[in-house]
Design a protein around this nucleic acid. Structure first.
Lengths: 237, 237
DNA sequence: TTCGATTTGTTCGTATGTATT
DNA sequence: TAATACATACGAACAAATCGA
């Protein structure tokens, strides 16, 4: 009789939808498993099954005795998406130098990446990430204006934490997945100079699309990383 | 009374140890969950809990109605560790051109990477991966001779499937995790010529350490990838 | 500090559905 | 068709961590 999707998937989807809708602001606890089980008219084990994957993905965080919390984009969480490290693997928090913030119009590639119509209004920010006191990565990022109403340079530059923390706390957008493409290339003179590279020296070019918890693409980011002293770390099991 | 590690972790470790010891050759089914539950004197749910993570990591593969199998390094499995793709994301099976196979002695860095003493005997292989009919990645890899007794050039070059498939089927070593460091750099003239790069053109330099199911490092691999037409794909949730 | 209520973590057992052989 | 094996779902009990009275 049951050829439909499993109950635990339905429950998972419902919880994700509620998080995406901002029902549970980041940092706040979900209802206790017992309550969720009552609400969804299922067993606690089914709730566990539904949330296990979200915990593994970092969307939720469970703490024995306390509750299950919607994960915040704190500094630890940053390292899930920040791959630049010292060769010995030392993870360090980058310092961000704001460069500029402007309004733009989506070209074909940007529109495709963000699932928008070409010509849609975009917000573009640029900044420079410093590690070990030196410029390490030059980033340019685009956002659909419709998803970030009222965001401007001062608000972007004056944020307290990470960029994704800003998205999450002020616009209810939780980035939970990123897709990246990496290439080795030679940046133009302006970009090379910003990174302290000599002419003809290569850098790592990174194209990232960030997705919200509901799967929508929300940010396109192009970056140049100086990998003379640093390396991009990737681990796969 | 129970400050010890959870039962499901003990069971997991036991299963991993048996796989690492070659008790269940790749492709063969594990004992049914009911049998495992009897053997470990626990509930079936505990067996599930123990194997869930291994399934997620690709070490095991469960099929309803058939059984739970030790994963083989088939071509699909390859793409877990092979990140070079066309910019549109098209995944293609590389063609491998064997270059050479030699005996070496571990220097300090190789020894550290493979958890050996400096001076330990190594095997070194080089090959060239082709994609879309063009050279795409030049790889140099080192193995501890002690872990691969009797491996030589003909056996390495004459293998049927992937390198990791060879490790697994002929030496009982299942690679389940890799750590990679990526940099942009300019290869020397010899390497550039092999990849069809002009002088001064950059390539992606990849340093990989591969780990067996029991966590031991088993392979060090240095690679130059041509990212003019291809890109290194990475996705993180 | 102690204690009790709450919440997640672990483990058990059972029943039924679905896919494979 | 029947037996086998995994998939889903339910429910219960106790342990361990947390927090407030």
């Amino acid at each position: 009789m049951n050829i439909e999707t499993p109950l635990w998937r339905q429950v998972r989807a419902a919880i994700v939808a509620e998080i995406a809708a901002g029902e549970f602001p980041p940092g706040t606890p979900l209802p206790a498993e017992k309550l969720l089980a009552e609400r969804f008219a299922c067993a606690i084990g089914t709730i566990r099954r539904a949330t296990d994957g979200l915990v593994a993905e970092g969307v939720l965080s469970r703490q024995q005795g306390r509750g299950t919390f919607v994960a915040q984009h704190t500094s630890e969480r940053l390292f899930r998406f920040f791959h630049l490290r010292q060769p010995d693997g030392t993870a360090e928090l980058p310092r961000t130098e704001f460069l500029d913030f402007t309004r733009r119009i989506a070209d074909a590639e940007q529109a495709a990446a963000l699932n928008l119509a070409p010509g849609a209004p975009l917000l573009r920010a640029r900044h420079l990430q410093h590690l070990a006191g030196r410029p390490a990565m030059l980033e340019k990022l685009w956002l659909a204006e419709a998803l970030f109403p009222g965001l401007d340079g001062p608000r972007f530059a004056g944020r307290a934490g990470t960029v994704y923390d800003l998205y999450q706390r002020e616009f209810g957008i939780s980035v939970t997945r990123i897709d990246e493409q990496l290439r080795a290339a030679i940046p133009n003179a302006r970009n090379a100079e910003r990174l302290g590279l000599r002419a003809g020296e290569p850098a790592l070019f990174i194209r990232r699309i960030a997705f919200a918890v509901d799967g929508r693409p929300v940010e396109l980011r192009l970056a140049w990383a100086d990998t003379r002293e640093l390396a991009y770390f990737n681990s796969r099991a």
